[in-house]
Design a binder for these strands. Structure first.
Lengths: 248, 248
DNA sequence: GAGTGGTCTAGACCACCAA
DNA sequence: TGGTGGTCTAGACCACTCT
């Protein structure tokens, strides 16, 4: 025998998998599980804690331990992904909001990604992708000075102004193209980790749900970077889809 | 004030961020934290539990609560770049092993992805990508019957035989091409979630580390699927990189 | 008010690791 | 052997949700 709470968690996990407890319904109350297994309250809570951290259930005060809805990713059988593979695919329509915008000095990481020196001025834009009742993705974008100035000179507006939503409504990449800096390539790197408390708060991520981290560098002709982005997406509300041409 | 354990976790989190506790070193012992904050043992453990689930620390019996190493960028590899999707990593990054192979009836999900009827026979191949200290990715692949037979008729070997590593050493996509079913497109969908106990065991994933889920459908001319794959990768040992050509 | 989960205590014993 | 974290108990009180 392993641990008591491990065994209890195993039983509950199996029961959920067998459909004994359907998504949206609740597990037996702690008190009942205490009696059924003849253990103390904290032992049951440890078991539920395991399931919570696996993303299977969400305990709710006054309600019960609710079984989570099934992975929404299984719904992504939809027609075809939107043009531009850098777009994020979610299970529904969403809206972009610009939270912040302004000049700042590039840190080491951003400078490296943009191929500039650390400390050089860049425009930093923070956007939220709102879907349904909450933020599904936090996006931080950095644009080098000469690109910002080129767009401004071309009548594309000031990217350092948060109230300027031109890049959102018209697509920043189009503005770059019109300004003579057409992006031709994007390299995206995806990874995953658990959210920090701030991210968990902003996106209202339940316990047991990780985030999808996307780091992108977009380049124009000559492999010169025109922007770089780091996006943090709630793992229960989004996935990223890529269409890749193969050469064989 | 929030909760006691929440405050303690906050303090420790800040301290780690400030570099007071370096990766690889340990936090103060539970007993010391009990005295410092004047709380019970379980309260300290609750605080450490939070940090553990955030992937910041890993408690080790007899050792202490160890601060986790940050993932170096050099540890990432690109399982999904157009040229390297199925090629053996020649950079010494890792090694592919075939764990299982055989015929089975396609379930609803696989059938849908392959554009066939549920219950039709497909070859199911399970592979492990071994890297560093253990399995970094579990890969499940399904190939429709007519493709398997075409490869076999063309002298490419039997994909249903686990000891047949032709597809690994020579690249399955090349075998398909030689057999008249050249793959021309792949659509990959990436998402993330927490690992189940079996995955955690197989890949030796520490607590607080999610997995990266890659679902791919590869198609030949006419958008006919030639294979589909679901890969589960340990979030602390891999990332996926895509290079995407843009049209603006 | 009744029932749910959340926090916290004080103490006990066990399992693991290093010196 | 001494110190570390892991498990478990019995009980208390708090916070929240629903009827």
């Amino acid at each position: 025998m392993g641990t008591k709470y491990g065994n209890i968690a195993h039983d509950l996990r199996e029961a959920i998998a067998q459909g004994e407890y359907l998504p949206g319904s609740t597990l037996p109350p702690i008190t009942e599980l205490m009696q059924r297994y003849g253990v103390a309250r904290d032992t049951v809570r440890d078991a539920i804690g395991l399931l919570t951290n696996e993303g299977l259930v969400i305990p709710k005060r006054g309600i019960g331990t609710v079984v989570r809805e099934v992975d929404p990713v299984s719904l992504t059988y939809s027609p075809s992904s939107p043009a531009g593979t850098w777009q994020v695919q979610t299970t529904g329509a969403g809206k972009d909001t610009v939270e912040e915008a302004g000049w700042e000095a590039a840190d080491l990481d951003v400078a490296h990604r943009l191929g500039i020196a650390a400390g050089e001025q860049v425009v930093h834009r923070v956007r939220h992708f709102v879907k349904g009742h909450g933020v599904a993705q936090i996006s931080e974008q950095w644009v080098p000075k000469h690109i910002v100035e080129a767009i401004k000179a071309n009548g594309g507006g000031d990217l350092a102004d948060a109230s300027n939503r031109a890049d959102v409504e018209k697509n920043l990449f189009e503005l770059m193209t019109e300004a003579g800096h057409a992006p031709v390539n994007a390299e995206e790197s995806l990874s995953t980790r658990m959210p920090d408390p701030q991210e968990r708060d902003t996106m209202d991520v339940p316990p047991g749900v990780p985030v999808l981290v996307t780091r992108r560098v977009t380049t124009e002709a000559g492999s010169k970077p025109v922007e770089t982005t780091t996006a943090i997406g709630a793992g229960d509300r989004m996935s990223a889809t890529f269409k890749v041409p193969l050469k064989y």
